[in-house]
Amino acid sequence: MITISTDNQDTRKNFLWLLFKSTFLISAFTVGGGMVLIPLMKAKFVDEYHWIDDKETLDLVAIAQSLPGIMACNSAIMLGYRMGGLTAALTALLATVLPPLIFLTIISIFYDAFASNEYVQMILKGMQCGATAIIINVVIGLLQKQLKKKLVLPMVILVGTFIANYFFGINLMYCILVDAIIGALVMREPKYND
């Protein structure tokens, strides 16, 4: 890691501006979420600016991925913090969130006029079916991954949570809280780590 001296105000400002600019552009032009964003961030921060090294980036991204929240934002916060402390963490987070915020605000303002059009409705119906196929595919992949591990406890949690939420309508937040406690109590062994 290259330490950026806080004594030198110009270098510091320059670093924050570069960080903001590159993160903003990456976020604005990347479609497809975290997994696409991360390699681009690595290319900028590691290969181009040498603010942080390869291994550390991967370690931080692995942690960011498993923490609650949006993976792209978590990675930006952690990498930013590692590269330049709290201000850099905030800068990177802001630059990640701003592009989708601006974009979607514009889309949602026009959504109603857009979505009430008959032809647009046909297109949206088709896209909903496409999105459903994506979800089905994701669910199949995740279930296969769980089954392959042949561990009893995760399967009990999976089935139990499904029944509790779908058939008994128990609030998601309670389900998650209970599962987190079970995990903290009895799933700390390495065999449960992915």
Binding site: L142, N165, C175, I182, G183, L185, M187
Partner: peptide
Amino acid sequence: GILNGLRPAVVALICVAGLSF
């Protein structure tokens, strides 16, 4: 440990959401 407990729960919840799709 907490994350290990949450991972299978998340799969279950995605199934529930997927059903409404």
